[in-house]
């Protein structure tokens, strides 16, 4: 005979719960978080710099928080846009968690901020599992990474509310299979919008800002990913019953 507890407890329930708290706290002060996921070198800093600059020109109060394992290079680049920017060094950790984001905001995030863009650690695996309290999750892929990226990283692309293709100006040079990419996105996330951008040429710049503003005004994203309808989202530790029996 040994004692057994059937716990039925979601492992990431604590992070999901903290993310929900942060989302509610930020919503109460009128701030919406946009979580950007991509591989290293996908061009998300270049695109974000262009989007922040545009937001400043349009008078949309934005801020950006950029996470890296090391160096403050990205914050220096983003700050050229004129928006408030903060660098988070994760000290080797491969992803951000809701608690880590919350701790960065106190005393820094300007009160008037409407959109907070979070540039997650460049990694398409680990950040996908962690809700940061965002309203809009965006997965980015550059044309140079190949059209099968969504199939290789189904959680990152499957849970996104918007997919952004970067470096579109290089599509022809690298023989990017656009139709193949769209079919692969649809396989893991049917119905999600895909926008094509080139930060260098200015093509598609503003699309990310427009979708973020819309999510802010509507209080939620326009798309609900199928993968987010799974049974394990937002498990709350206190909702689980702990009972015992003897075997």
């Amino acid at each position: 005979m040994c004692r057994v507890t059937e716990l039925q407890q979601a492992v990431l329930a604590k992070n999901d719960h903290r993310a929900d708290e942060l989302r509610a706290r930020l919503a109460a002060r009128g701030t919406t978080v946009v979580n950007l996921l991509s591989s290293p070198g996908s061009g998300k800093t270049a695109l974000l710099e262009a989007e922040l600059k545009l937001a400043c020109e349009r008078g949309v109060p934005v801020a950006a928080l950029t996470a890296d394992l090391a160096t403050e290079n990205d914050a220096t680049r983003l700050a050229r846009s004129g928006a408030p920017v903060k660098q988070v060094l994760t000290d080797g950790l491969c992803h951000l968690e809701a608690d880590m984001l919350a701790a960065q905001l106190d005393g820094w995030l300007p009160e008037a901020t409407r959109l907070l863009f979070v540039e997650n650690v460049g990694n398409l695996v680990c950040p996908a599992s962690y809700d940061l309290g965002e309203t809009l999750r965006v997965a980015l892929a550059s044309v140079t990474e190949g059209e099968d990226k969504p199939l290789k990283y189904p959680s990152a692309f499957g849970l996104a509310h918007l997919v952004v293709v970067t470096k579109a100006d290089l599509a022809e040079a690298v023989e990017f299979d656009c139709a193949g990419f769209l079919a692969n996105v649809r396989q893991v996330n049917p119905g999600v919008e895909v926008v094509f951008t080139s930060a260098r040429r200015g093509e598609g710049v503003g699309a990310l800002l427009d979708r973020a503003v819309a999510a802010h005004e509507n209080g939620g994203p326009a798309h609900r990913p199928v993968m987010a309808t799974g049974p394990q989202r937002h498990g709350h530790p206190h909702h689980h019953h702990v009972h015992e029996h003897a075997h």
């Binding site: 716990l7 407890q9 990431l12």
Partner: peptide, 8 residues
């Protein structure tokens, strides 16, 4: 999408 502790 399960990631849960079933039993201890």
């Amino acid at each position: 999408r399960e990631l849960e502790i079933a039993e201890v």
